[in-house]
């Protein structure tokens, strides 16, 4: 079994046990890296345009993401809502970004440094929780 077809019917031969591991693989057609750059757990995603349910190459999980991200959500939140590993979400997001359906926040900072204004805003926000 080296070739995975696009046919969703193929999912039928997966048993429950294997499901958690194999299904994400089928959904992403074997790809483990997204077609975009680095996307980490707190990378934010927002839907920027609607997409037809018949759009070729998109499955139900893609459409769920489009619906969830009407308001900005992180990769971690999307993964938790879909109950899929974050790595699978990255690949699905790559598909959506390629079609211009979602906007993905700039790649994560390479350093830990934040500007003073960010610290101040977070402090004020926390104090008034």
């Amino acid at each position: 079994m080296t070739h995975l077809s696009d046919d969703p019917a193929e999912e039928q031969w997966l048993d429950d046990e294997a499901g958690r591991i194999v299904r994400p693989y089928v959904m992403t057609r074997g790809r483990t890296e997204p077609s975009r750059g680095k996307i980490d757990l707190i990378t934010l995603v927002v839907t920027t345009k609607s997409v037809s349910p018949a759009e070729p190459g998109l499955g139900p999980e893609h459409h769920t993401i489009v619906r969830l991200c009407e308001r900005p959500l992180s990769v971690a939140e999307i993964a938790a809502h879909l109950d899929l590993p974050a790595g699978t979400i990255r690949v699905l997001l790559g598909d959506l970004a390629d079609r211009g359906v979602v906007a993905i926040q700039e790649p994560a900072r390479e350093t830990d440094a934040l500007d003073l204004e960010t610290y101040k805003a977070v402090l004020n926000g926390l104090r008034t929780l």
Binding site: T43, L44, V46, T48, K49, S50, G100, A103, T118, V122
Partner: peptide, 15 residues
């Protein structure tokens, strides 16, 4: 919603 506007989406900063 529109593609033209997509470039101007302002996302919050995630910390």
């Amino acid at each position: 919603r529109s593609e033209g506007e997509a470039a101007r989406v302002k996302l919050p900063t995630a910390i």
